[in-house]
């Protein structure tokens, strides 16, 4: 009875199928626990949270510097910047745009710095569906390797005011 005090000495080890289920569930919990450190060392997709504090205005300066020295074109009025393979790329999030458009080479690795100039934003790469959080005051560094070529829309997925759904950008990956 769940609504009455139990008889005295109610502490017993589980038996039968209950015991079997608890054992199975515990085993599964151990698998779940080990999967994450395994992937951390062996997997190719990890969010390590590498980040540095940065003043939003300082970050905006770095972004502009990056665009000035790596600009390779322009799309819809937004400059396209292509960092050297292995180099640093900067992406600035603000209400309600991403700046600049980034161009990467497939299979090359980049250190992508993302931060916000105003409030919290999200960084989602479509249609492959990768998502990261973007905070003002934090330079979030993703060491990223695009594995396919094409044009990838990026989208803010953290609510950031009335223009939230129109906050988009683009990453171009060339062969």
């Amino acid at each position: 009875m769940s609504i009455e005090s139990p008889a005295k000495n109610w502490l017993h080890a589980p038996t039968g199928t209950e015991r079997a289920w608890i054992g199975l569930a515990l085993l599964w919990c151990i698998v779940l626990t080990l999967a994450m450190p395994y992937w951390h060392f062996k997997g190719k997709q990890n969010s390590t949270g590498e980040a540095y504090t940065v003043e939003p205005t300082r970050f905006a300066d770095r972004v502009q510097q990056f665009v000035d020295s790596n600009k390779v074109g322009e799309v819809n009025g937004t400059p396209i910047a292509e960092p050297p393979p292995g180099g640093d790329a900067y992406l600035q999030a603000q209400m309600w745009r991403f700046y600049p458009v980034l161009q990467f080479k497939k299979g090359q690795t980049y250190r992508l710095h993302i931060s916000s100039l105003d409030i919290q934003h999200g960084f989602a790469v479509l249609p492959i569906n990768m998502n990261f959080q973007v905070l003002p005051g934090y330079d979030h560094v993703l060491t990223i390797t695009p594995t396919m070529a094409g044009e990838f829309p990026i989208l803010c997925n953290e609510f950031c005011g009335i223009g939230h759904h129109q906050m988009t950008g683009r990453i171009i990956v060339t062969e």
Binding site: W28, L32, A35, W39, G43, K44, Q45, N46, S47, T48, E50, T109, V125, I128, N129, M130, L142, T143, I144, T145, P146, T147, M148
Partner: peptide, 20 residues
Amino acid sequence: SFVVYYFANWKALADVWHVR
């Protein structure tokens, strides 16, 4: 169901860009 769904998600994750 849990095991199938869980590993299907690892598979989906393995298909996206590499990131650290």
